[in-house]
Every structure is written in structure tokens, then in C-alpha cells.
Design a protein around this nucleic acid. Structure first.
Lengths: 109, 109
DNA sequence: CTGTATCCTATAGGATACTG
DNA sequence: CAGTATCCTATAGGATACAG
């Protein structure tokens, strides 16, 4: 994260959460930590590769944390860090905004 | 906009404002309408192609409006629509969030 | 179950030149 | 000034197969 350029703060934020899956991952983790497979399932349609890549980058940026349980079969859980949680209001507002717009579009028919 | 799929509201929102330049354009228009060239200049580093593409899509999605003044030389201004303005809180919060994180990173050195 | 490694395609996006 | 048209490269991202 330290090596990301930060021309404009908004751009910086969008770099962190603006990619296709990142905001969704964070959003789904708002309710609490989740097991890897479970998280991936909630993201319907995400490829295996993108899932791994997305959580790895979010972890690098310290927005989520990865916990490994030494069990068999292996078990991994992801949860928000305090920094990740600090995005809660923004994520919820974006979700609400989208829901309202969608509703309005439906009404127009 | 009507033809965008809306699996998840948050995803819908991100589709509208999550691309590289869109949120920046909206953000810079919060203070009021701007002339095309002026707007493009504030976005430092945006290519001609991407600028046109970005404002066209934002216009299609009814987040900004394009006004043409019949003058010579030609003059075009862009401004937020009511729908675009309704994103103000979100945009400002994302900008604030980014600024705070950047500050924290700097302090750590 | 969790994750890695390839391969492949589609798209994003920049540079440049040109038009009304 | 505002915008279009090409061409080109880099990256995003999916599908599949495989490993611990």
C-alpha cells in the first residue's frame, strides 16, 4: 500500500477498493469473518484465480486479514481489519444508493 | 443504464462510478459545471480518448449533463445531474477516507 | 478444502494524427 | 476548442488442470 501513488485521495481509495471484486469482498465480510470457500461462494461467478488474487491484494493493503487454522482438511478464514471496517459506512451507502437507483428504474416502467 | 445487470446493488454502483476516471470526473464537478477543456485539465494524465469515453458514459448513465453553447470557437460544459449530485456524500467520504489513510502512512515514518 | 500455475481472450487505456 | 479515428500494448480476468 505504501508504494501506491496518491495523486488524489479519492483516486487512492478507488485504487484500493475499486476493482471488480474488492468492494464486494469487503461488503460481504461486514457481517463477520468467513471461511474461504464460503466467501468465494457468495461472490457467484468469480473465478478461482480472481478470488485468490483479490483477497491477496486486500490483505497486502491491510483491509482484510487471513487466518489459517491448522486442521485437516485445511481451513482458512478471512475477516476485516480495523482499517477495512472503517470502510463500512461507505460500502453500505454505495449499496443503498445502488438499490435506490435500481428501484427508481423499475418504477419508471 | 437500464440494460446494466444488477446482481448486487453495490456492484451496480461500482459499475457506474468504479472505473479509473469516472469518480474523479464526478468529484471535480461537485463544485459546479466546468468547461470541457478545463475539466480535462484537472484530470492530469487522462488521454483524449479516455476523457471523451468517460464523459459519454457518465452522460448515458445520466450522472452528468452535457451543454453545448453555439459559439465560435465551440464551447461545451459538463455538470452534474441531480442523480450525479446524489453521489456527493459518497464521493466526499471516499476522498476523506483516502486522505486519512495517506496521512497515517506518512506518520508511520 | 485451499490454493497455484498456465493458457488464452477481451477489454482498458495510451499515443498520435486528424476534422469541424 | 472539442471531438473522432486508429493503432497498439498492457492488463484484467476466465477456464482448466493440478498440488498440498
Amino acid at each position: 500500500m505504501e508504494n501506491k501513488k496518491y495523486e488524489c485521495p479519492l483516486r487512492f481509495t478507488m485504487d484500493l477498493i475499486g476493482s471488480k471484486w474488492k468492494s464486494l469482498v469487503l461488503f460481504h465480510l461486514l457481517k463477520g469473518g468467513m471461511r474461504s470457500g464460503e466467501l468465494q461462494k457468495t461472490l457467484k461467478d468469480i473465478s478461482n484465480k480472481m478470488f485468490t488474487q483479490t483477497v491477496r491484494e486486500l490483505e497486502e493493503d491491510q483491509l482484510i486479514q487471513r487466518r489459517i487454522f491448522p486442521e485437516v482438511p485445511p481451513r482458512v478464514e478471512y475477516e476485516l481489519t480495523p482499517l477495512g471496517k472503517s470502510l463500512e459506512d461507505i460500502l453500505i451507502q454505495m449499496d443503498d444508493w445502488g438499490r435506490n437507483v435500481i428501484e427508481d428504474i423499475k418504477k419508471e416502467r
